[in-house]
Every structure is written in structure tokens, then in C-alpha cells.
């Protein structure tokens, strides 16, 4: 890519990553969440790949690491769901702190308070890992296919 693209990428890529993380962490307070944030996080790496080429991006995050992060994200999400099972229900919000002064409705979240929604932010982080790593891995796979068009694919007969 041209010098202009490379320079601007250098300045913005960190900001995009940060913005993605912000969207994820504030998912329960503002619009967005694990999926949207995960996509933005993945886009920051994709951006890097588009500007500087495949090798640079792979150095920051190899396809192996993406695969592992994706699996970890999914398992983390499932674990959170399982932990709810210990206190009653699958996916039960077991971190909830019921406000005892309110008798009618059980409030567990407070507006604009970052640490207030129980397991929701944790779920968001897990989803971000899964979606971000997954999307990046798909993009890497696409470039991979283009580079080695006739290389051995998955599950090919031996």
C-alpha cells in the first residue's frame, strides 16, 4: 500500500483496537457489546493486514493464536453458563446483588456503573474473543487460499 495508507494506519490502528475494547467493556451500558466490539477488534488486525501485508499482521497475531483464542472464548462463555447451573439455572446471573431496599423489582444493574451487571460483561468479553479471533481467522484463511491456490486443503484424502 502507499505511504499515505501506511502512515494513517500506524496512527489509527491502536485507536481502533482501543475503541473495540471500550465497546466490549461498556457493552452493558452503551450500544454495542461483545459481537460489535469483537468485530472492531478484528478489524484493527485486518486493517494492519491490508496496509502492511499478511506477514506483519500474522506476526502480531498468528493464525494458531487466533484459533486458540477462539476456542478459549467459546469455552469461557460455556463455563460462565455452567457456573450459573451451580446456583440454579443454566446462564443464571449468579453475580447478581439484589438491592434489598427495592421490594417490587430486583435491580441488579445500576445505570452508568461499569461493575454492576453481574455476568453480562464477562459474557461480552468471551463473545469478543470468539467473534474477534474467529473473524480474523476467516480473513487469514481467505488470504491463505489466494496465495496457495493448489495447496492441500482440510480433510483431503491421504
Amino acid at each position: 500500500m502507499t505511504l499515505i495508507v501506511k502512515t494513517i494506519t500506524r496512527y489509527t490502528v491502536g485507536l481502533i483496537l482501543l475503541f473495540g475494547i471500550y465497546i466490549v467493556l461498556h457493552g452493558h451500558l452503551t450500544p454495542g457489546g461483545g459481537f460489535a466490539g469483537g468485530v472492531i477488534v478484528a478489524l484493527s488486525f485486518v486493517h494492519l493486514m491490508l496496509a502492511f501485508g499478511r506477514e506483519t499482521a500474522i506476526k502480531k497475531m498468528s493464525e494458531k493464536a487466533a484459533g486458540i483464542l477462539e476456542g478459549l472464548g467459546a469455552i469461557m462463555f460455556l463455563l460462565i453458563a455452567f457456573m450459573g447451573l451451580t446456583t440454579g439455572y443454566f446462564f443464571y446471573n449468579f453475580f447478581r446483588r439484589v438491592d434489598t431496599t427495592e421490594t417490587l423489582v430486583e435491580y441488579i444493574g445500576r445505570p452508568f456503573a461499569l461493575f454492576s451487571a453481574g455476568i453480562i460483561p464477562l459474557c461480552n468479553i468471551a463473545i469478543c474473543l470468539k467473534v474477534g479471533a474467529g473473524l480474523f481467522a476467516i480473513f487469514v484463511a481467505l488470504t491463505f487460499l489466494k496465495m496457495n491456490g493448489d495447496a492441500a486443503g482440510d480433510g483431503e484424502k491421504k
Binding site: 484459533g67 486458540i68 477462539e70 476456542g71 469455552i75 443454566f90
Partner: peptide, 20 residues
């Protein structure tokens, strides 16, 4: 009743563990 979600959770966990 409380083992119902396992029908979904067990194969999902198996799939992700297998990929890891």
C-alpha cells in the same frame, strides 16, 4: 429438569475442546 441444558452444553464443550 436441571440436566436439560446439558444436551446442548456437552456437545458444544466437546466441539470447542476438540478444536483446542
Amino acid at each position: 429438569c436441571s440436566i436439560l441444558p446439558l444436551f446442548v452444553a456437552v456437545p458444544l464443550a466437546g466441539a470447542f475442546l476438540s478444536s483446542l
